[in-house]
Structures are given as C-alpha cells and as structure tokens.
C-alpha cells in the first residue's frame, strides 16, 4: 500500500512539475476561460438579485392587477344590479298600470274593491 502511494506520489510529482512549464498559449486561454467564468458568475448573481427585486415589484404588480380585476368585477356587478333593479321597477310599474286600467275599466266603483264585506255580499248574492 505504501509502495503504491509512493509510486502514485512520484508520478504526481512529475506531472505537477510539468504544469509549471505549460505552454504559455494554453495558460493564457485558461486565464481567459477563468475570467469568462467569473463574469458569468457575476452576471448570474446580478440576475438573481434582479429577480428577487423583480419579485417584490411583481408582488406589487400582482396586487395592483388583482385590485384592478376586483374593480372590474365590482363595476360589472353594480351594472347587473342596476339593470335588475330597473327591470324590477319597470315590471312592477306595468303591473300597477294594468291594475289601474282594470279598476277604471270595471263596472264597479273603486271603493267596492276596498270594501272588505263586498266579497262576502257578492258570494251571498250569487248563492241566491
């Protein structure tokens, strides 16, 4: 085991020695690659920061957007309610008008319909 490690260390020592005399062109390319990687890290970091800031803004945006949606829903509901009330009023007006026309067009005077004993009298009269 020790002999194995000695052999490995000797090999590694020679390989390390060679690294120091590596071709300058390759070394320059490696330095450039490292700089690019570091730039990428900085860019990635900035993007992450912008995303987190954007997250807060997005939250506000969402709130604003949901508020706007709520306003639209309230407006539509109000419109529907207004239409319903108007329809109801118009319908009830029609009924009143029809009732008035019926009373005025009837042979009996309007007071007859207000007299509570009239129906009883009418029933007795028809039974005779």
């Amino acid at each position: 085991m020790n002999h194995e490690q000695d052999t490995a260390k000797a090999i590694i020592s020679l390989l390390d020695d060679e690294l120091a005399s590596m071709d300058a062109n390759v070394v320059n390319k490696l330095v450039t690659a490292r700089q690019q990687a570091l730039s990428a890290m900085r860019a990635s970091h900035q993007t992450a920061m912008a995303d987190s800031r954007g997250g807060v803004l997005r939250l506000f945006g969402d709130t604003i957007s949901s508020g706007r949606n709520l306003t639209i829903v309230v407006l539509l509901a109000s419109l529907a309610f207004f239409a319903f009330i108007t329809t109801q009023q118009l319908t009830s007006q029609d009924v009143i008008e029809q009732d008035d026309a019926f009373i005025l067009g009837s042979e009996l005077p309007p007071e007859a319909y207000l007299d509570k004993g009239f129906d009883t009298w009418l029933a007795q009269d028809s039974s005779h």
Partner: peptide
C-alpha cells in the same frame, strides 16, 4: 472552459 462556466453559473 465549459466546466468552469457551468460551475460559476450554477454552483458559484
């Protein structure tokens, strides 16, 4: 270079 970039971007 690719490995350096990946390390920096994803695990930096």
């Amino acid at each position: 270079q690719d490995a350096m970039l990946k390390l920096a971007e994803k695990y930096g």
